[in-house]
Design a protein around this nucleic acid. Structure first.
Length: 155
DNA sequence: GCCAACGTTGGC
DNA sequence: GCCAACGTTGGC
């Protein structure tokens, strides 16, 4: 089993927004970073991902979602009206991918960045690296387990 | 608002 | 291919 973390600004798209979607499912579009894209392409159906809220008063992990659709071309790259439009992307050779995710659970306890920084098991967690900007991050099983525990969730 | 990190762009 | 300038992310 592989685990991941994905960031979103809760004002734009929060875990609650995902939960409110039909079947709690939505495409994770708009990723425009090659490293993040490559991680999405490595995701497998059934993988779990931590839903991180960033650029907000209290950044941290709100809960868990599941990958329900493997990587496929992100249609927003071809849409001139989209903020994610990429004039360099060709239909015959799509540049950007997305995965489909489904809401799984909201942690009973929100796991703030501050809490994670105080947790020994997370001392090497990539999310906490200085200056980390990557919006899609691989998570080790031990890190995933530690975060679920902090969240008071027995998945 | 500041700043660290780092990706991208473009001149050469 | 190098590298300086610039832009973006995101915590604080």
């Amino acid at each position: 089993m592989h685990y991941w973390l994905m960031k979103s600004e809760p004002d734009v798209f929060s875990l609650e927004h995902l939960r409110a979607k039909p079947q709690g499912t939505a495409p994770w579009d708009g990723v425009r970073n090659y490293q993040a894209r490559n991680f999405m392409r490595a995701m497998q159906v059934g993988n779990r991902m931590l839903f991180h809220h960033s650029s907000c008063p209290e950044p941290g992990i709100a809960g868990v979602a599941e990958i329900v659709g493997a990587a496929r071309p992100d249609p927003t790259q071809f849409d001139p009206k989209s903020e994610f439009f990429d004039p360099g992307a060709k239909a015959a050779d799509p540049r950007w991918s997305l995965v489909d995710v489904r809401y799984l659970a909201t942690f009973p306890k929100f796991v703030s960045l501050a809490t994670m920084r105080e947790t020994a098991a997370l001392k090497d967690f990539r999310l906490l690296w200085p200056g980390n900007r990557l919006s899609v991050i691989p998570v080790s099983p031990a890190e995933y387990k530690a975060i679920c525990k902090l969240g008071g969730w027995k998945g």
